[in-house]
């Protein structure tokens, strides 16, 4: 997972506030809008196409002022969830 640069699907429209991100998938308009809050929103914001898993962990850790090692498993799991939901794609680093 570490070799991927994580980026968002191009069909997604997003509205971002300080602690939340709301997503609408234009390829699936009937799907309810997805709400990412707190750490989930932080991971989403970090996965902007310029970061791999290491860098996403580092960015989220920096934001919450905690150790990247402490959140690595959670972040990896969540990145997998986002891929499974078709929201995030992993490209070559």
């Amino acid at each position: 997972m570490t070799s991927h640069l994580w980026s968002r699907r191009s069909s997604l429209v997003e509205v971002e506030s300080e602690t939340r991100v709301v997503l609408l998938d234009l390829d699936d308009l009937a799907h309810p809008p997805r709400i990412l809050a707190g750490p989930a929103a932080a991971v989403w914001v970090a996965a902007d196409g310029s970061r791999d898993t290491e860098a996403v962990c580092a960015e989220v850790a920096r934001y919450f002022e905690i150790s990247a090692q402490d959140i690595r498993t959670d972040v990896e799991t969540f990145l997998s969830d986002l891929v499974a939901e078709g929201l995030l794609v992993g490209g070559p680093a």
Binding site: V13, L29, I35, L36, A37, P39, T77
Partner: peptide, 28 residues
């Protein structure tokens, strides 16, 4: 963090309005 969305989270009107405009534009 593993849950993609907290069931307690509710979409606000401030968040919804711009998305609805994009949605209606896409449908059109």
């Amino acid at each position: 963090m593993s849950a993609l969305q907290d069931a307690g989270e509710r979409l606000t009107q401030t968040e919804a309005a711009p998305l609805i405009y994009v949605l209606t534009t896409t449908v059109a």
